[in-house]
Amino acid sequence: MGFDVKNIEDKPEIAIVYLKGRLDVHYSSEVETQINKLISEGKKKLVISLNDVEYLSSSGLRIFIAISRTLKEVNGQLKLIKLNETARKIFKIVELIDMFDIYESEEEAINSFM
């Protein structure tokens, strides 16, 4: 399990979060706590990379819904990047794929922030 954050020098509101490992109930609650901490520190524009997420459960889906709602309350935005085939399949099945802004690269996601 891993949780790394990259900041962008001239864009203090943006943080890129790299998740790693199994996004099951165990790891999801930890991730949610860490991300809420980032939001409370003023990171209102979040890019979350799922590149190294080897497994995604409904607990993982739930935190993306929760984070999206929290960010909306503070006029923030959430972008997801690098979903693998299985993650995409799960997002599609629960009809969440169109509800999130999903990009292939960090650059695309960062440039899409308004």
Binding site: S58, R62, I65, A66, R69, K72, E95, L96, M99
Partner: peptide
């Protein structure tokens, strides 16, 4: 279609 109306449970 609206993320705000999604119930968290049952997934």
């Amino acid at each position: 279609k609206d993320i705000d109306n999604r119930r968290p449970g049952g997934l």
